[in-house]
Design a binder for these strands. Structure first.
Lengths: 337, 337
DNA sequence: CGTTATGATGAAAACGTTAACATCCATAGT
DNA sequence: ACTATGGATGTTAACGTTTTCATCATAACG
């Protein structure tokens, strides 16, 4: 393995000069810089990051931590997230991926090992981990879940505008009886989505019907149950906004089991745009949140924060947008689309 | 940040002794080892891996490289793969994840940065990368795709027994007219799956019908088209084995568009058990390959190989098994299940 | 022409660890 | 009692960088 000293010898300069040349120091005459760069590349030099990191007291490593990597839910996130992160991350950085629950995850968190940490969070259970990271003094950005604590940099999709968009779409398609199957109680995403939904209703002069708020917990089963109670109502809604895609699947199954046509008799809107949303029957109209965009934005934030640890923590919400597929009937020009 | 020298001072020994004690060297008296360990943990000592790696000439890093991280196909793999790898990987190792196509991926591959590399491969396009890694002298295991070259350690699912299992299941449910929609030409997985399918047919004394082999390329669209040509046949098959789940989705859509009942009129079997397979309507009977198991096994292999680089490269095939859902009709006791 | 800036380079120390080699002390063998 | 043996610990150098400080030309200045 060749080192800067080898290059120095070949170039007839000191290894210090080589180091400076290779790192673009302004102290080196451009002509020698070029010469050294050429020699280095001719010799196939690759820097030893261990040595580099030892002296600079960095790790050149960004850690991505996933909550509940065990659960299938997060599957599609991972690839998207990585894509977004890589897009923003200089090639010099290593990106490691671990589950928050992985054994030893907590202990291995220290500033020596990570220059910065991204947490792709899905639930409040992650808070313990998040605060551990923060108290270890490692630059941190929490992704994907909206946080209350303003001291933690955070980027997530705007659940409220998402809920709003969902209800708006139903309205624009002519629906006036619009129900909601709510997410897990206590989760910020649940309340934000409901808030958005109500915003829209109120904006359109619809008064919320208590029967049309039915609880769920983000699971398929809860969606199934919730849909059944909606279908049992004397005045059924014509459209149902499901707090996430999983519950929308459950709702679909309930309709299917009772022979209720989608979108003929009832329209369904999901939230999250998980990969399977395009494969359901009919394909699910849902709110797309761009995980890769969130991840990319979060990475930018993290990098900035690594440079200026004392800057004000930023919280960003990225717009979510509706992707129209075939689970919502258009009541206005009567073609079921 | 506290170092072994601080500990040495506190314990009244040399830093060498501390190093040895912490690394479990037999040269240290058990009693001092305990004492030092206690002090270290009291002082919240965490080793500086950069320094460690510098002198041991290791990186403590395993790289996981994904082919075509851009494509949605690989989505579900990632989480599963990580789960499997982490299970086998000592906490001391860092695990990095990158796409094979990521800019700069090739250059950053050198023995200094990676102690070992896992390639989660999906197509022959990865070969260039694979051979680059091998020629760089980094211990390597290729996952998920069966390789011809015996010099490269490899663990994948047994596509042939998978294909066999699929056709067997159809047979056991009473089907005798069993077609196959084939995967991308030239891919080993395609031919292996077809081979397994034929094995089963022949074992049951069925003679393959040329009309029942219809080409595809693993895409949804090709599945759609293929299914249409099958449905156009005068003697339609009663069961269709699709080379992967994507094509099965396409086939489902084709049936749906023509009003053909699944599994009433035609049964469908997929391959891969992607997450969405359980959400289709009806849920798809398919061949499950355990990515996490493949990844775990591959990691074991890699670790072994890192210790003994000169050992014979091993190639392993892990059994795939059928998961029965609701897309195959049981023709024998006539209850459609 | 002498002094002083200035710009380019070099020498040496430091980062935190491991490992080769040296030292010390006690015990066993004669 | 004296030396070999070996077990436990210490000294020191090394790993490949960056960085501080020193050196040395050379150009600028009066």
């Amino acid at each position: 393995m060749i080192t800067i000293k080898d290059i120095a010898r070949a170039a007839g300069v000191s290894h210090t000069t080589v180091s400076r040349a290779l790192n673009g120091s302004p102290l080196i005459k451009p002509v020698t810089r070029e010469r050294i760069a050429k020699i280095a590349s001719d010799m196939n030099y690759v820097p030893n990051y261990s040595a580099k990191n030892l002296v600079t007291r960095k790790s050149n490593t960004i850690g991505l931590f996933f909550s509940s990597i065990e659960q299938g839910t997060s599957s599609s996130f991972l690839a998207d997230a990585l894509k977004g992160i890589r897009r923003e991350l200089d090639e010099q950085y290593m990106l490691t991926v671990s589950g928050i629950d992985d054994p030893g995850s907590l202990d291995s968190i220290n500033p020596r090992r990570y220059d910065g940490i991204l947490v792709m969070s899905q639930s409040e259970l992650d808070n313990r981990f998040i605060y551990h990271v923060q108290s270890a003094g490692i630059p941190l950005v929490v992704l994907n879940r909206q946080l209350d604590d303003p001291s933690i940099p955070n980027v997530a999709s705007d659940d409220r505008v998402g809920g709003h968009a969902a209800a708006d779409h139903a309205w624009q398609c002519g629906h006036r009886l619009i129900a909601i199957i709510e997410g897990k109680p206590g989760f910020k995403s649940s309340s934000e989505r409901r808030l958005g939904y109500m915003d829209s209703l109120i904006a359109h002069g619809l008064s919320p019907n208590p029967d049309y708020f039915v609880p769920g917990d983000y699971s398929i089963e809860s969606g199934y149950a919730a849909m059944n109670t909606l279908l049992d109502l004397k005045n059924r809604p014509t459209a149902v906004f499901c707090g996430n895609d999983d519950m929308a699947i459950g709702a679909m199954n309930a309709c299917f089991d009772r022979g209720v046509q989608i979108p003929g008799e009832v329209s369904l809107i999901g939230f999250d745009d998980m990969i399977f949303a395009q494969y359901t029957n009919p394909p699910l109209t849902t709110i797309h949140k761009s995980v890769s965009e969130i991840a990319a934005e979060g990475t930018k934030l993290l990098l900035r924060r690594m440079e200026q640890p004392d800057a004000e923590p930023v919280q960003r919400l990225l717009g979510s947008k509706l992707v129209q597929r075939r689970s919502v009937a258009n009541l206005i020009n009567k073609d079921g689309d």
